[in-house]
Design a protein around this nucleic acid. Sequence first.
DNA 1: TATATAGTGTTTTTT
DNA 2: ACACTATATA
Length: 715
Amino acid sequence: MDYLQGLNPNQKLAVTTTEGPLLVIAGAGSGKTRVLTTRIAYLIRERQVPPYRIAAVTFTNKAAQEMRERLHALIGPSAEQVAMGTFHSLCVRILRSEVAYSAYQPNFQIFDQTEQLALIREVCRELNLDPKRIPPKALLASISKAKDELITPEEYPAAGGDFWEQTVAKVYGKYQQKLVQNNALDFDDLIMVVVRMFQQHPQIKNKYQERFEHILVDEYQDTNRAQYELVHILAQRTGNICVVGDEDQSIYAFRGADIRNILEFEKDFPGAQVVKLEENYRSTQNILGAANSVISNNTERKAKQLWTKRDPGEKAVFYQGDNERGEARFVADTIRRLQKERGWSYRDFTILYRTHALSRVLEEEFMRSGVPYRIVAGLRFYERKEIKDLLAYLRLINNPHSDLSFVRVVNTPKRGIGASTIARLSAYAQEFGISLFEALSYLDGIDGLSPRFVKALRGFKNLIDSLCEQSGELDLTELVQAVLEQSGYLAELQAEGDEEAQIRMENLQEFLSLTKQFETEGSAADLGALLEYVALISDVDTYDAEANAVSMMTVHASKGLEFPVVFIVGLEEGIFPHARSTFEEGQVEEERRLMYVAMTRAQERLFLTCAQQRTLYGATRPNAVSSFVREIDGQYLEEQGSSFMSVQRILPPTAPKPGVSPDAYQVGDKVEHKVWGRGMVVSVSDSGGDLLLSIAFPGKGIKKVMAHLAPITKV
DNA sequence: TATATAGTGTTTTTT
DNA sequence: ACACTATATA
């Protein structure tokens, strides 16, 4: 049992307590993933549990992947047999096997938020609801909440409820009907449908209860009601349920996560044992002390004190800039200083913020001072228009009855098929209860369609029919290429020819390399598998820790990650904690947990910054220092010069470049930028003695820089 | 049917 | 400030 070596006593206990319910309270950086993987290895090796009888649930694909890799290293190929994945991917797998017991066809698809909203808007139109008075987003939030709580449209309180609930009930019913019509499920459905199936068909429930002897759940503090129910059902027979979590890191209440699940585990699972992992292996004493002093202000938590054997390290540093630019300058200067003086690499630094809106100033400052950076999440690959268009084509080929995909691509690229034509087609389809695509077979029977539109629609039908045929013969990459070429999509982009079209084409190229990779790696490389894969992955999954650049992300995105040096920026009242949280005490506690998560990402150094005055959303206002900063025990904190000048003394600014003459740059000049690489000047304008250049960097877009300040050289 | 303009709402979002 | 959406107009 050499793999138990090096575990501390509580970690060992968490690994070897294999029978009955077990709650592992795993503080930040306490070796949680190691415990989980070792536990699975222990079950297989020491307790002779067959690997396929173990289910391990995580919250991200990345976490599942990491766990699988580590398990593989411990026990070899049998790691592949463990049912490991996110709640959603596990449910999709169950649903695939038992689809006959559901309301869906085997080739069902999964709708993301954009598609959900499109459907809601459609329902609102049909019900004559004013989207201004009744925002589709709010409707979707209410529906999603209902699904998280396993409430069906029929059960939704229509009669007894207030006006809002009555409205939601109406929309919910129609929305669900449309989902089924589209043979589609939203993310919430995936869980709810499986739970319902278990409840209605005891033989299926029994099958999975028999199958899984041991259930492990990671990040239990972030489970919602439906997920709780699923876990509960699966574990009912054996009672072998191990959940791992930390109530102090519960930051997804707004998505339905119910902190109650972890706080009351012992009530829900009588006889449960509890193991606490309080030794932190990640951060220095000062960082941990600072984080502890903040989180101890929360009341909704179990008493817990993280400790570490590590050295005290340096104190956390607090800095207040005059404004957001001064703050950004401090961050950039400090990074360059530590990089030079202490030998850190750019990849060792991470900047965390409460909202994406704060990233822009930092970006500008980094660009100016030549610090390489990348933003994690934010602009999402799979939410880009061109990718979604392409996916809609692929979905339509996979399932021609998908009306939503149909509407998305029928006039993309432009084929002269507009809203009124689609409305006529749609009316016909509705009358006969068929899909839009099917309706294309009866074009002669539709009133009010002039020959011009009939011809356009027929052309579209031929295109899709032809692509469907080809999909049988071509491999995935070839099929995607065929779609892009035969649909005219690529041609339209080429015709546009501007920088934006260029980027879109590169993204599509990127998608092609993804399908190539999928083909070589995936066991089942068919279209359905690809669509399912892209529906369930996110961008944090593709976060690459290798690239040598400073990373920036929201605090939410940083969960589960760790970095040598962390900057938490925008620590101002109203920003962090966010203004919308200050009304309810429960929400302030959630913000505090968010702050705690942010602080505990840091291994060696922690910097906390804010600005006296900030321009945000077009308004400039003075901001008070975040109450969270004031909650930090003074012994762990050191204040650094509050004006830009004092930083300058420590670090001389970049040597000023010689002045730029008005004709130093001309449109068409090729330049080399320290961060963005090679580019071409597309516009030059005079700006207070300096030149403002717009430079097009292939694949990175057009960036505006000051000739005098930017790290560029002519080539 | 495609395009220009006005209006709107701006936390976080593992899936 | 800005990006996205709904509506008016050519």
